[in-house]
Structures are given as structure tokens and as C-alpha cells.
Amino acid sequence: MEAEVLSGGFADPAIQSAHAFRSVMEAMARPGTLQHISGAEPPAPLSKAAGAVLLTLCDTETGVYLAGEADCDAVRAWLAFHTGAPLTGPSHCMFAVGTWDALNPLSAYPIGTSEYPDRSATLIVECAELAQSGATLTGPGIKTNVALSVPGIDAFQKNRTLFPLGLDFIFTCEGHLAALPRTTQVSAPIGATEVC
């Protein structure tokens, strides 16, 4: 087994995962805000943020779907060693990780049932850049409105109409993350004339 597989996990799991979770929770509670997250050194192409989210939330009880380039031997072995999470297809996963293009189409993922809307997938979207600019977000957790560089607008608007069902998103980029739960309304940037 290669050293890369064995390393890169939390050195102090209880403390590091506590800090990592607070970042994820702050992000999910305050959509559009950028949070710092650290502690994981996952193999390429996973970002440090995506690695830390997986270490914090995944274990043998959570099916993980690796989309596109994330589905490589290095990532499979790393995830298996550090979390024990079973790999699944998109239709049965609790978490999915990959780039926006690789994760699409969103119709492949479980959105929960009307009696158990929590049984829905959380998508960890790897982004080339993450900034507080672009589309305008409003909804619970946001005082007035906030801007976030989301990889699309239509898909999130469609996801919002499913409420209380729907998918939740965590955007990761290097050591940062932001989140977009199903309650958030995404609209074109203020001042923009055209929907991108």
C-alpha cells in the first residue's frame, strides 16, 4: 500500500473534525459565506476542503459517489482507508463528490421523500474558484442577500422548487468552502441583464 493512501487524514481526529464540522455548519447555516477548512491532505484531484468534508461526515454508514475524475484508484483507496465509506452509484449515494460537469445531471441523485426529506444527497462540488461574486442568494440564513460564484443558476432554481425535497450543495475550492442548501433562492447577479 502506498504511503499516500495512509497519510493525509486527520492527525487528531476528534479536535480536527470538530473544527472542520463547525466550518461546514457555519457554511450551511449561512449560505454564500466562505469558510476556511483544513486538516486533510487528500490525493489529487480532491481539494483539501473536499477531503476534510469527507473525513468529517463520511463513514461506513454513508454511500459516497465519486464522479468523473474523482473516481480514481488513489481517491478510492484513500477514502476506503480513512473513512470506510462504501462507494455507490449516484442514485443511492448520501454524498457525491466531483466537478459540476461530472456531477450532472442532478436528476440522478436522491432528493428524499415527502415524509423523510432528509434522506437526500449532499453534493460536494469541486470548483476551480470560489468567490463572493456572481449570482445573488437570498433565503434562510441570509440577512438580506449575498453573492456567490455558483456554477449555474437554473439548476439551483429548479432544485429550490422541490422544497422540502431537494439536494444540498457544498462548494469546495482549495482550503475553502461555501454551501447552498435547498432553501436558498438563486437569482441572476444584481444589475445583470441576462441570465447566464
Partner: peptide
């Protein structure tokens, strides 16, 4: 234990997503 905390943390995140 850590596995219990992960389970609770996942529930908290879904709770925040569906107020």
C-alpha cells in the same frame, strides 16, 4: 465517540437545510 458525532453532525446539517 467519533462515529456518533458524525451521525449527529449529518442530522444537524440536514436540519439546517430543511428548517
Amino acid at each position: 465517540d467519533e462515529q456518533t458525532k458524525r451521525m449527529i453532525r449529518r442530522a444537524i446539517l440536514k436540519g439546517l437545510a430543511i428548517p
